[in-house]
Amino acid sequence: MSNKNHISPGTGPTLETERELLLEQAQNWLVRLTSGSATTDDAREYKRWCAQSAAHADAMSEVSRVWEVARQAGKSFGAVRQPAARIAPLGIARPGRRAFMGGALAAGAAAWLLVRPPGNMWPSLSDIAADYHTGTGEQHEFILNEQIQVALNTQTAANILPVDGRSALEVKSGEAQVDVPEKASFVVHAGGGQVAAQSAARFNVRVDGRQVCVTCLSGKVDVSYGARVLVATAAQQITYGQGAAVSTAAADISKLNAWRKGMLVFDNTSLASVVDEINRYRPGKIILTNDDLGRRRVQAQVRLDQLADVVGLIQASYGAKVTMLPAGIVVLS
């Protein structure tokens, strides 16, 4: 008489497959926590998951290590590069058979994390492949033809485009500021649009997803998007993208210029927006899960070299509860 509950050797889960399952769950947790929609309940459940067993904690430690490898690789390969610079392939030391999914899976996970970094916690391979790229908290300046001065802010990817024997700039993501001297002209491409400036013009281009914001700081710029051409003069701002919408607005130049001076300026800004902006400059990710807290208004100036103190300041000023998690993740509730 057969035993229905009997499991023949080789048909049940092995230690290897159990570990692979835990590693997959650990990676899913970190992806969820950096998705931008994590909740306080998610943070609590995550801590309970980690505390279930030594194997769970081990898996989280291993995944965090791979995430750190991917982040460091992104930072190293994402350092500002001159055009035509070559990128070396990612190499990851392979642990033993029982290490992270047998080693090969670790390399695959790190590669996947570089292609699709969760929560934009480090640069993607497409950004790294750009002619110029700045990592989190990094800025870079360079000069192109006719003494065109270009400054790149944090997490910015840009390419140099040859146009009629001259150079133009393509801003793929992030933020760039361009200074065009007298008797010179320059063109910037961003988000399917074009910004043209001539003689003594200075302007800022910020690409955030599918939306592009062009701010004229001095002089005049022409912004072309679709069939429309708009002109902006000093302290005027043109926003386009997300469909065919194009809008103009006044701009606070001193606030927009603050990053060039190593500062972030917030004037009656929601705490949620403050956190989003700080995440562009700070390694890891701050996650705000309290909507009421996110609506609080902030009036502050923050030095970029003192961002390590920001979480403590938010905790002290607004009574936020702070939960510290692996991979530089902080949950505010």
Rank of each mutant, 00 (worst) to 15 (best):
P118W: 01
A129L: 10
A158E: 08
M121D: 03
A158Q: 07
H140I: 05
T154R: 13
M121Q: 13
T134P: 13
I128D: 04
G135S: 08
Y132S: 14
I148K: 00
Q139A: 03
L161K: 04
F142G: 11
A158N: 01
A130V: 06
Q147V: 07
Q155F: 01
P123G: 09
D131T: 01
A157M: 05
D131C: 07
I148Q: 03
A158G: 07
D164G: 03
T134G: 07
P123V: 05
P162N: 12
V150I: 14
P123S: 11
Q149T: 11
V163G: 01
T134C: 04
M121F: 13
A130D: 04
Y132D: 06
I148W: 05
A130I: 08
N153P: 10
A130S: 11
A129T: 06
N120R: 15
G119N: 08
L144C: 04
I128N: 10
E146W: 02
N153W: 00
H140P: 06
T154C: 08
L144A: 10
G135Q: 07
Q147E: 15
P123Y: 03
N145C: 05
Y132A: 15
G137D: 00
T156R: 11
P162K: 12
P118D: 03
I128A: 15
P162T: 09
P162I: 01
D164A: 15
A129Y: 02
P162G: 05
Q149E: 14
N153D: 10
N153E: 08
Y132C: 15
V150W: 06
Q147L: 07
D127A: 15
G137Q: 04
L152R: 04
Q147C: 08
T134Y: 01
P118S: 06
G135K: 12
I148Y: 05
T134V: 07
G135M: 12
A158R: 04
H140G: 09
L161W: 08
A157E: 00
T156V: 08
D164E: 10
E146C: 00
I160D: 13
A157W: 01
N120K: 14
T156S: 15
M121C: 15
N145E: 14
H140Q: 15
E138W: 09
I128W: 06
L152N: 07
S124Y: 03
Y132L: 15
H140F: 11
E146L: 04
D131H: 00
E141Q: 04
A129S: 14
L161T: 00
A130W: 03
P162V: 07
I143A: 04
L144F: 07
